[in-house]
Design a protein around this nucleic acid. Structure first.
Lengths: 169, 169
DNA sequence: TACTACTCAGTTGTGCACAACTGAATTGTG
DNA sequence: CACAATTCAGTTGTGCACAACTGAGTAGTA
């Protein structure tokens, strides 16, 4: 729109044009909504995700939680420590592999997980989003994430599979 | 799909079903890519956004930067302090309003902003994303963010400015 | 002109994300 | 068996996001 700087002639690079910025902004707006919903239960959104993963899968080693949530031990260790201090999960060293730590929901944690899922479902329902559009968005985001993972994780081999992005899902 | 917990009968709430999680995951994957691109220039992605805003608009008060980037002073104050310490921006108390602080790019900051924009443009181009799909995604994200803002920011009572939010762009 | 509202940048404290590292346990290989 | 490489959770340090607050400056009003 209103450009006058020394920029060469590229543009397309205004703040509003950055898909990354739009992505982060939407994510933060969502986070704000969930923060309100979960705040009464005294848990944060990342903590909710951990409880959700444990509710879905039952006992999980820290490593597996990290894979599911795409978080490393630097994030998970203190987070799980807080959940344990709140009496929501229990951590026990694995017998088979002493390096691993298994995480379990306590009864209190399972109850709070149910409350949290209700709260999240209710406030999400209040948004009145179009299910078809959400599905479309969800698919686009997954494909985008896949693309970003291969680009970032694999380094400099952009040619490989870009043309055939359809092969996912 | 392997559920056995005490959940009532709602579901749709698996980790993978959360649009919010997909959003945050994509945002973090993008952040990781940009972190690599910007790391060589010794700036972070949020710092890049500030430089970008200043490149686009010229001198800006802190307040206005916060509006553009959706950040408050608790985030911006230390961030701008780091940019100033790096010699990339200059902060000066406004003459008209002594409460306000105007932020300017230094020559060094303007140069680094140009480098950063190039780096971001190049690594984004390497993704080979479909422009039409990106535009679609961008529009969906903006509408979603608007919806989330009106739902969370205003609650139910202060209906004042809700209708006006449609008038952007 | 006083006095109350409000606005603005900044600080403090909590929690998350992530890189880099540590140390113990395990695995693979000679 | 010995020993190097790897795996795992955890720690440390940096930076961002955000709530709550402070204090100086400004605007509105009696």
């Amino acid at each position: 729109m209103s450009k006058q700087p020394t920029a060469t002639a590229d543009d397309l690079l205004g703040l509003e044009d950055h898909i990354c910025f739009a992505l982060q902004t939407a994510s933060r707006a969502f986070g704000s909504l969930y923060r309100d919903a979960l705040g009464e239960l005294r848990i944060t959104y990342p903590q909710y995700l951990v409880l959700l993963a444990l509710t879905e899968h039952g006992e999980l080693p820290v490593k597996r939680i990290g894979e599911l949530l795409r978080l490393d031990s630097g994030t998970l260790s203190p987070l799980l420590k807080r959940l344990e201090a709140a009496g929501l999960v229990q951590r026990t060293r694995s017998i088979q592999d002493e390096r691993s730590v298994d995480v379990n929901l306590t009864a209190k944690g399972a109850g709070l997980s149910a409350d949290a899922r209700r709260a999240v479902r209710d406030c999400a329902a209040d948004l009145g989003l179009d299910p078809a559009e959400i599905r479309l968005l969800h698919g686009m985001l997954q494909r985008l994430t896949d693309r970003l993972d291969t680009a970032g994780g694999a380094g400099v081999t952009p040619a490989a599979r870009l043309g055939a992005s359809a092969a996912d899902h």
